[in-house]
Design a binder for these strands. Structure first.
Length: 167
DNA sequence: CACTCGATCAGCG
DNA sequence: CGCTGATCGAGTG
């Protein structure tokens, strides 16, 4: 069955993010496009509930970009994702702003200490960057590691949170 | 099922 | 610093 998605823009100083909502909650977040793409609003009329979720998501995004704690999040829709991925993402939500963990620490935290590389894979598959703070995961030696959205974005987010990493 | 590929890591020279 | 093996989940055919 096909679940309709609603797209709503989040205007921030860092650009316009695009949030995707399903009937279950926030399902995805897109990085700001380079160009001034269509700021067209929702394809169909968002329900009151979705607008409410959107307020939460927008506020949380603004706070994280300002280097502060996210605060309350809307429900996250991870339908169709694997249990392993969901477990990893839940662990990411436990990393507070300004702190980081290594891929190995995440693996240990979810009780699967040898699944180090798999954790990296799950981070890369995260559909909701920033709010699910995949950028707070560094390599073991505090090196920057990788980032699917581009390393410059990871560096920017970490800098906003006052985090140090090794070159 | 049998591959392949990673946002890893620790060990070793 | 660079190379290597171990090891896991996901994607592909």
């Amino acid at each position: 069955m096909k679940v309709p998605l609603i797209e709503l823009p989040v205007v921030t100083a860092a650009g316009i993010f695009l949030a995707h909502y399903s009937v279950n909650g926030l399902a995805g977040l897109d990085w700001p496009a380079k160009k001034n793409t269509r700021i067209r609003s929702a394809v169909s009329t968002p329900s009151l509930q979705i607008l409410r979720w959107h307020r939460l998501a927008s506020a949380a995004l603004q706070r994280i970009l300002a280097g502060r704690a996210a605060g309350e999040l809307p429900p996250l829709d991870w339908t169709g994702k694997t249990e392993f991925q969901k477990t990893v993402w839940r662990a990411l939500l436990d990393i507070p702003s300004g702190k980081t963990k290594s891929y190995g620490e995440i693996a240990a935290a979810i009780g699967n200490p040898k699944a180090v590389r798999a954790v990296g894979g799950a981070c890369g598959a995260n559909p909701i960057p920033v709010l699910v703070p995949c950028h707070r995961v560094l390599a073991a030696n505090k090196k920057i590691g990788g980032f699917s959205g581009g390393l410059s974005r990871k560096r920017d987010l970490l800098a906003r949170e006052g985090v140090q990493w090794t070159a």
